[in-house]
Amino acid sequence: MVDFPINSTDFRLLQPEVIELELEHFHQATEISAKATSEALSWQTYLNALALLSFKEWLSKRILDQIIHQNLNAIDTVGHLCVGEFKICVIATENLLDEVVNISRYAIEQQQATADFYALFEVLEEQEQAIFRGFLDYNQLMNYVQRFDLQLSADGCYQLPFSLFDPEPNHLLFYCRFLQPSSVYLPIASTATNTSLLLHPDFSQGRKKHLNEQNLG
């Protein structure tokens, strides 16, 4: 994978990509979140939907040669976009004041929820904006979790530093257009249990199995 270096001294000088939320986004997000089983779950689903719907529209205007699918429900609150053979997990938050990003254990440990890339959005409902704050790929995420032996928080999330995310959306566009899917090493379920994640020794076979099970395309 191509590495785009990020100078930490310039990190805050980058202008974030701001996506204006449309009335249709709010209507669809409300309909999706109404199916949630609790108030807390409903709100997170609502934020995720706003980020997902606006991001899909943003991507569709910049990647014209690939079909973009979306998947979001009110049960697991994890939203995905499929861009060609790549899967992007959309993470939505209301603010990043503490510069910590919470990623659900489900989003990185369950086979059906893992993604090639994890895109972070700050959703400002009153300002009607979804702000792209950065992304990282699955390998980077898992390397950090394992390197620092991260433990789950009380609400079942891994807490990652905001600075770990690449804030440049054009880098993500570059990957989706030109990167080979095999460059991101996704896990597959072991034969013993569907919840155990292993690194497959033959990635090409593991990737094919993963994509087939996800029914992409």
Rank of each mutant, 00 (worst) to 15 (best):
V2G: 01
F4S: 06
F4G: 05
S8F: 09
T9D: 10
D10C: 09
F11V: 06
L13Y: 14
L14M: 14
E22L: 09
F26T: 10
F26E: 12
H27Y: 08
T30L: 10
E31R: 07
I32Y: 08
S42V: 01
W43A: 05
Q44D: 07
L47P: 09
L47H: 12
N48L: 05
A49D: 08
L50W: 14
A51V: 14
L52D: 11
L53P: 06
F55C: 15
L59P: 08
K61I: 03
K61Q: 11
I63N: 01
D65T: 01
I67F: 07
I67S: 08
H69M: 07
N71K: 05
N71W: 04
L72A: 11
L72R: 12
I75C: 13
V78F: 14
V78T: 10
L81R: 06
L81C: 10
V83T: 12
G84L: 11
G84N: 10
C89P: 06
V90Q: 10
E94V: 15
N95G: 06
L96D: 11
V100N: 13
N102P: 07
S104G: 07
A107T: 04
E109Y: 07
E109K: 04
E109W: 04
Q112G: 14
T114E: 06
A115P: 03
D116G: 02
Y118G: 05
A119W: 00
L120T: 01
F121K: 00
F121W: 03
E122F: 03
E122T: 09
E125W: 09
E126H: 05
Q127N: 02
Q127H: 01
E128L: 07
E128G: 02
F132L: 01
R133E: 04
F135R: 00
L136T: 00
L136E: 01
L136N: 00
L141V: 01
Y144H: 04
V145C: 13
V145Q: 10
D149Q: 15
D149W: 08
D149A: 15
L150Q: 08
Q151M: 11
L152D: 08
G156F: 02
G156M: 06
Q159D: 10
L160F: 13
L160N: 13
P161S: 15
P161K: 15
S163F: 12
F165D: 15
F165P: 15
H171A: 09
C176F: 09
F178G: 02
Q180C: 02
P181W: 11
S183R: 02
Y185E: 08
Y185L: 13
Y185D: 07
P187F: 12
P187W: 07
A192P: 00
S196L: 08
L197M: 04
H200G: 01
P201N: 07
D202K: 08
F203A: 03
Q205D: 06
Q205R: 02
G206Y: 01
K208E: 11
H210Q: 11
